[in-house]
Each structure stands twice: as structure tokens, then as C-alpha cells.
């Protein structure tokens, strides 16, 4: 059960951290219509995160005390466990530190310019689309339900980011160069999506989780067709930026959490 919780948290953390990044654009987009579009996408991810966190909290609350203890390195969560209190979606989002977060490194990378945001979205949305399609078949009905609901959203996200890759790639000389540079910069982070951790392997073997490694060739085919249409080049080189799924993060995550969790940390235990 512990691994199912960790697996669910990985999905939740991806959605929360990535959605948080997108929400930073709100009010600062290059065109008003795109400001609205990005906020919409950010809201979709926040909704997904909540679905996964609620599920993880329910699974956690059902555990016997001995198994709850020590699952997280969070002092505040341990306190709750000690007092015999149940936890909820907010406890998981707001009371864990970076070494309990399992999101992919790509989701915590900064927004950069518009091309960087588009490149990050393009790699991640294309992956999510394939991933959620499979996750719908999970024997964990809650995971399957969130995946099914999210797939409609993710299908739109993928279209949105693909269209922007094409528009920027095949737009002006300047936008072409910026788009190519952004694809190159984020390329090293794409390997992590398909490397299976022990937790993922166990979940995939038990038909609860998705075999991400098996999605790689389709993902590559999908992105190549868009990159071609955009008159861009598929980046080359190693893809060694890895570790988020094993709770080893970049420096960026700490700042995201410092901001995200500020009120809960400064004014603990209050209702808002």
C-alpha cells in the first residue's frame, strides 16, 4: 500500500508543481487570450492534483498507525499521525518538504520566455496524453477515474502546445531560433519521464500503474511529427537530468515550496 501512495503522490506532485509554474504566468502573458488559455490549463492541473492528493490521503488514512509512521519526513505530518488525526489534500500539498516530493524535474523548471514554457508543455503534454490514456485502465478505480476525466483536458493541452511549437518554429526567424533553443534546453529532462523507478515497476506489474518505458517510442514519434511540421530539429544528446521521481530535485523546487506553503507554515493549523 505504501508504494501505491507514493505512486499516487508522484502523479499529484507532477500536476501541482507544473500547474503552479503555469499559474505564475497569470497576468503576464504575451496576449490576453493566451493569458486566459494558460490559466485554464493551470486550473486543469490543479484539479488533477486535488483528485490524486485526495486519493492518496484516503489511502494513507486507512493505514494502520505503524505503517503511517515514518512514511514522510515532514515534522508537521508526523505530528498529525501521532495525534491520530486524518490528513487531507492540503496536508499533502502544504506540509511536505522537497525531499518528500516526487515530481519530474521538468515540471519544476522555470517558465523562462514563451518558447521555454511552450517547449516544456510540449514534451510534458505529449507524455501526459499517452500516460493518462493508459492510466484509465488502472485497476485502482480512483486513479482510473482521475485519468479518464483528465484525458479530455490533456488532449486539449497537447493540441495547444503542439500548435505553439509549430507557430513559433514556422513563424519568424527569431521565433524559430528561440523555439529551437528551448527544445534543446529542456531535452535533457525528457529521459526521466520514461525511466521506471522501483515503485513504478511494482505498480505497472500489478496493473495499477503505467509502464512509462513502453510509451517512449510513441512519444518520440508524436513529437517528431510536430517538430518536422514546425521546421525544427529534434534535439540530440544525453538526457541525464533525472532524479525528481526519487525525491532528488533541482534548486528550483525549494523556492516553489517556500512560496506555495508560506501561509500554512507561518500560520500553522488554521482554517482558511
Amino acid at each position: 500500500m505504501k508504494n501505491r501512495i507514493l505512486y499516487t503522490l508522484q502523479l499529484a506532485d507532477n500536476a501541482l508543481i507544473y500547474g503552479h509554474r503555469l499559474s505564475e504566468w497569470c497576468g503576464h502573458g504575451p496576449v490576453l487570450e493566451q493569458d486566459i488559455a494558460l490559466t485554464n490549463i493551470s486550473l486543469d492541473f490543479l484539479g488533477q492534483a486535488r483528485g490524486f492528493y485526495q486519493h492518496a490521503a484516503n489511502l494513507f488514512n486507512a493505514l494502520p498507525l505503524a505503517e503511517k509512521q515514518g512514511m514522510f519526513l515532514s515534522v508537521a505530518l508526523e505530528e498529525k499521525v501521532k495525534k491520530g488525526e486524518n490528513i487531507d489534500e492540503d496536508d499533502l500539498a502544504y506540509l511536505r518538504d522537497g525531499w518528500d516530493f516526487r515530481n519530474l524535474l521538468i515540471t519544476e523548471q522555470p517558465n523562462g520566455d514563451w518558447a521555454t514554457t511552450v517547449a516544456r508543455a510540449f514534451y510534458f503534454d505529449t507524455f501526459n496524453h499517452l500516460y493518462y490514456t493508459q492510466l484509465q485502465k488502472s485497476n485502482d478505480l480512483q486513479l482510473a477515474a482521475v485519468a479518464e476525466k483528465s484525458l479530455k483536458e490533456v488532449t486539449y493541452h497537447k493540441r495547444w502546445s503542439s500548435e505553439w511549437v509549430i507557430r513559433l518554429g514556422d513563424g519568424t526567424q527569431e521565433s524559430h531560433e528561440k523555439m529551437q533553443a528551448a527544445l534543446n534546453d529542456l531535452w535533457p529532462f525528457t529521459g526521466e519521464m520514461f525511466r521506471m523507478t522501483d515503485v513504478e515497476q511494482e505498480m505497472a506489474d500489478g496493473k495499477t500503474g503505467v509502464d512509462a518505458a513502453a510509451l517512449h517510442s510513441q512519444w518520440k514519434q508524436d513529437i517528431v511529427s510536430i517538430i518536422d511540421e514546425a521546421t525544427l530539429q529534434l534535439p540530440e544528446g544525453t538526457r541525464l537530468q533525472d532524479g525528481g521521481k526519487d525525491v532528488r530535485h533541482s534548486e528550483h523546487l525549494g523556492y516553489i515550496l517556500a512560496e506555495l506553503q508560506f501561509i500554512q507554515r507561518a500560520y500553522p493549523g488554521m482554517e482558511w
Binding site: 504575451p30 496576449v31 493566451q34 514563451w114 507557430r167 513559433l168 513563424g171 519568424t172 527569431e174 521565433s175
Partner: peptide, 9 residues
């Protein structure tokens, strides 16, 4: 910052 994006579109 959005000028080049609008130009590209």
C-alpha cells in the same frame, strides 16, 4: 516581452 510572440503568430 510578448512582441516577438505576436510577430511570430
Amino acid at each position: 516581452n510578448g512582441q516577438w510572440v505576436r510577430d511570430a503568430a
